[in-house]
Computed example of a mutant assay.
Amino acid sequence: MAEQNFVDYVKICCRSGAGGAGSVHFLQDKHTSMGGPDGGDGGRGGHIILRGNRNVWTLLALKYRKHVIASPGVNGRGANSSGADGEDVILDVPLGTVAKDAETGEIEFEITEHDEIRIIAPGGRGGKGNAFFKSPTNQTPRHAQPGEPGREEWKILELKVLADVGLVGFPNAGKSTLLSVVSAAKPKIGDYPFTTLTPNLGIVSYRDEKSFVMADIPGIIEHANEGKGLGLRFLRHIERNSTLLFMVPADTDDINREYTILLRELELYNPELLDKPRVLAITKSDLIDEELKKLLQPTIPKDIPYVYISAVAEQGLMELKDLLWESINSVPKDTFNQHIANPHRMMHGSRSKSSEEE
């Protein structure tokens, strides 16, 4: 996906429709000159609604649509005729979209399922007509309710990428190269920091026509949790991955130290990220021989499964896929990660189906 077409943050003004006013009306026809009240109710104002769509991957459609306005409800009329409701505005958004109040920053809800519908700005209620207020003690009410006004609120929409595997590493750790080799994705690759400026998704083929979704996300740096580098923009996307693949180059000075820094940044941003399954890939291993691997052994973390890989030389990739598949399927099916798993997996070999086959 072209960087200019990937939008993961928008701020929009949502103006829902006002409710229609109730009618003050009394029955009049050729047989009745002054009948009872028959004023109808006003219609509801139009809602502004977010709808999850698995075929949408970005908030690009809302980038240049700063104002979203729903139509008002129609006023009630005589003969107990209620006004029509205002037309709702439905905005299709990617799965993983978070809606926030722009003033307070409070999270209002998240869209995680296909066709999930949430009202981000409700329309005003229609007013009751005078027929509603008729009673034994007031048989000719001469008042009706006005419609409620609509709401005008600024909202922030943020996208958190949904994927089975999220790649975690410093810039130039080889994340984009790995994704380009194991999937059909074509991320931008270059030998300089922050080559990847936006997330890239790729579907990785596995054994027996199984597959899983991998996300290459902008590289992390030390103190990213404070907003340095691409900071919070990176960390937001890592929240919705089932398994985290840490990538550390074989030519780094201390593998364990680099891994610890990455882990610490995740913890400072959101401690719950440490509960996710983790796998370590030692990249660019074609640059070292077996003797150097033995020397590196003491610097490898003890609490994480690891594998030496080289995306360029295509070494260790199947072993890596095996580790990732095992990690993905180690997550219980009733957990949050499974609940929001990327629906495109169903098109390329369902995880749950594959588990049953095994």
Rank of each mutant, 00 (worst) to 15 (best):
E3W: 09
N5Y: 12
D8R: 00
Y9S: 13
R15C: 10
R15E: 14
G22K: 02
V24Y: 03
H25E: 11
L27F: 01
Q28V: 08
T32W: 14
S33I: 13
M34A: 05
M34R: 15
P37L: 04
G40M: 03
D41I: 05
G52L: 08
R54H: 09
L59Q: 06
K63V: 06
Y64S: 05
R65N: 08
K66P: 11
I69M: 11
G76A: 02
A79V: 09
S81H: 11
L91M: 07
D92T: 06
D92V: 09
D92R: 01
L95I: 07
T97V: 10
V98W: 04
A102D: 14
T104P: 08
G105M: 06
I107H: 02
H114Y: 06
I120C: 05
A121W: 10
K128R: 11
G129M: 02
A131Q: 01
F133L: 04
K134C: 08
P136R: 12
P141W: 12
G147I: 00
E153T: 13
W154P: 00
W154A: 05
L157C: 04
L159E: 01
L162P: 14
A163M: 02
V168L: 12
F170R: 00
N172R: 05
K175C: 03
T196S: 07
L197W: 12
Y206M: 06
D208P: 14
K210I: 07
S211W: 15
S211E: 15
S211N: 15
V213Q: 00
V213K: 00
V213W: 02
G219S: 10
G219T: 12
G219D: 12
G219N: 15
E222C: 00
H223T: 08
A224T: 00
E226H: 03
L230P: 02
I238D: 02
E239Q: 08
R240F: 10
T243D: 08
L244F: 13
V248D: 03
R257I: 09
E258T: 10
E272D: 13
P277Y: 01
T283R: 00
I288A: 04
I288N: 01
E290D: 08
E290F: 11
L292T: 09
K293D: 08
K293P: 01
K293T: 11
L295S: 04
L296T: 07
Q297H: 13
T299P: 07
I300K: 03
I304V: 14
S310P: 02
Q315N: 10
G316R: 09
G316L: 06
L317A: 05
L317Q: 00
M318Y: 13
M318K: 10
E319N: 07
D322F: 06
D322K: 02
W325D: 04
E326A: 08
I328T: 12
N329P: 03
S330E: 14
S330A: 13
V331R: 02
P332G: 02
K333N: 15
K333G: 15
T335V: 00
A341M: 12
P343S: 11
M347K: 02
H348K: 08
S350F: 12
S354D: 07
S354A: 06
E357H: 09
E358F: 11
